[in-house]
């Protein structure tokens, strides 16, 4: 006789943690988007105003923040595809666990392609 729940699609496993991550990254991207629409709107004020605010995006600390933003977007976007497949592909729920690890693997590969380049742009060195 089982003494505790054996776990479900969502509880305490990949299903739950992918949902937690999807939620946190979604909120982070949302707040960045609010700021990003406002900073881009400065092109309508003057070239000087836009350039001075965009200069802060090139500083080391914000530059590192951009790495976090790109990582969040990679996970949220790829896991979004996983959610869509779970909902619409008849075998989606069966493969949700494998798909989570595929999401992580693809996100890590894309991030590894992006991060060194971005760090070089932020910290000088290569063109």
């Amino acid at each position: 006789m089982p003494s505790k729940p054996a776990g479900t699609l969502y509880r305490g496993k990949v299903g739950m943690w992918s949902w937690v991550l999807h939620r946190i990254t979604g909120v982070a991207i949302f707040f960045f988007l609010l700021v990003h629409v406002l900073d881009t709107a400065l092109v309508r004020v003057s070239p000087e105003a836009y350039n001075s605010v965009i200069a802060t995006y090139k500083t080391p600390i914000i530059g590192l923040g951009e790495l976090g933003l790109v990582a969040s977007i990679l996970f949220h976007a790829l896991n979004g595809v996983r959610v869509i497949l779970i909902d619409f592909w008849p075998k989606g729920a069966k493969f949700q666990n494998v798909m989570f690890w595929v999401v992580i693997a693809v996100a890590v590969i894309l991030f590894a392609g992006f991060a060194p380049r971005h760090l070089m742009h932020v910290f000088g060195g290569a063109k």
Partner: peptide
């Protein structure tokens, strides 16, 4: 992201002229 952060000089190239 590819057009603005990856190709060319990435974040370093972004300014009013880039948007224009």
């Amino acid at each position: 992201l590819i057009a603005n952060l990856f190709v060319g000089e990435g974040i370093r190239a972004i300014d009013f002229g880039f948007v224009g």
